[in-house]
Structure formats: C-alpha cells, structure tokens
Amino acid sequence: MSGLLRTIASRAAPSLRQPTVVQRANLYSGPAKGKVGAAESVIGIGLFALAILGPAGWILAHLEDYKKKE
C-alpha cells in the first residue's frame, strides 16, 4: 500500500510545487490611438446601465404578476 501512495505522491508533487498557469499582463505605455467622444461615452455607459439594471427593472415591474398563484 505504501508503494502505491509513493507513486501517487511522486506524480502529484511536481504539479503542486509549481504554478500550472503563468499569467502575464499586457501593458502599453503609449497614449490611446483615438479619442473617445462624449456621445460615445454616454451611449456606452447607457448600454451598460441598461444591461445591468434592465432585468431587475423588468422583475420589479412585473412583481404582482409573479405573486399570483394560478
């Protein structure tokens, strides 16, 4: 039985010692390639807000329908 445990430990130990995923960040130090306008910013923020708050608003608007037992 100890031979089996040694075999399992010897195979598992290298993977436990070193990280299997190496993360590298892509950093750019230069300025942006193009400027983002005010209209683009408003549209982008509006779409993000709609995507996040839209489903919650739908549920709250139809809360009475969900409470009905049919």
Rank of each mutant, 00 (worst) to 15 (best):
S2N: 13
G3Y: 07
L4N: 08
L4P: 00
L4Y: 10
L4G: 11
L5T: 09
L5R: 09
L5I: 15
R6L: 15
R6A: 15
T7D: 07
I8W: 01
I8Q: 01
A9K: 08
A9Q: 06
S10N: 08
S10T: 07
R11V: 15
A12K: 05
A13F: 09
A13L: 11
A13G: 04
P14I: 07
S15C: 13
S15N: 14
S15Y: 15
L16W: 06
R17E: 13
R17C: 11
R17N: 11
P19I: 05
P19D: 04
T20M: 09
V22F: 10
V22N: 06
V22K: 06
Q23Y: 08
Q23G: 06
Q23S: 07
Q23R: 13
R24W: 08
R24N: 10
A25S: 14
A25Q: 13
A25P: 10
Y28K: 12
Y28I: 10
S29Q: 14
P31Q: 05
P31H: 05
P31V: 02
P31L: 05
A32C: 04
A32H: 00
K33P: 06
K33L: 14
G34F: 09
G34D: 08
K35Y: 00
V36Y: 00
V36C: 03
G37F: 00
A38Q: 02
A38N: 02
E40F: 06
S41Y: 08
S41K: 13
S41R: 13
S41T: 12
I43S: 12
I43R: 14
I43F: 08
I43E: 12
G44P: 03
G44A: 06
I45C: 09
I45Q: 05
G46Y: 00
G46E: 01
G46K: 02
L47M: 04
L47F: 03
L47S: 03
F48M: 12
F48C: 10
A49F: 07
L50W: 04
L50F: 07
A51W: 02
A51V: 09
L53Y: 01
L53P: 00
G54C: 00
P55E: 00
A56T: 05
A56G: 02
A56W: 01
G57C: 03
L60F: 03
L60N: 03
A61T: 08
A61D: 04
H62F: 13
H62A: 15
L63R: 15
E64M: 14
E64V: 15
D65W: 08
D65P: 01
D65N: 13
D65G: 10
Y66Q: 01
Y66T: 01
K67T: 10
K68G: 10
K68I: 15
K68T: 11
K68L: 15
K69Y: 14
E70P: 15
E70Y: 14
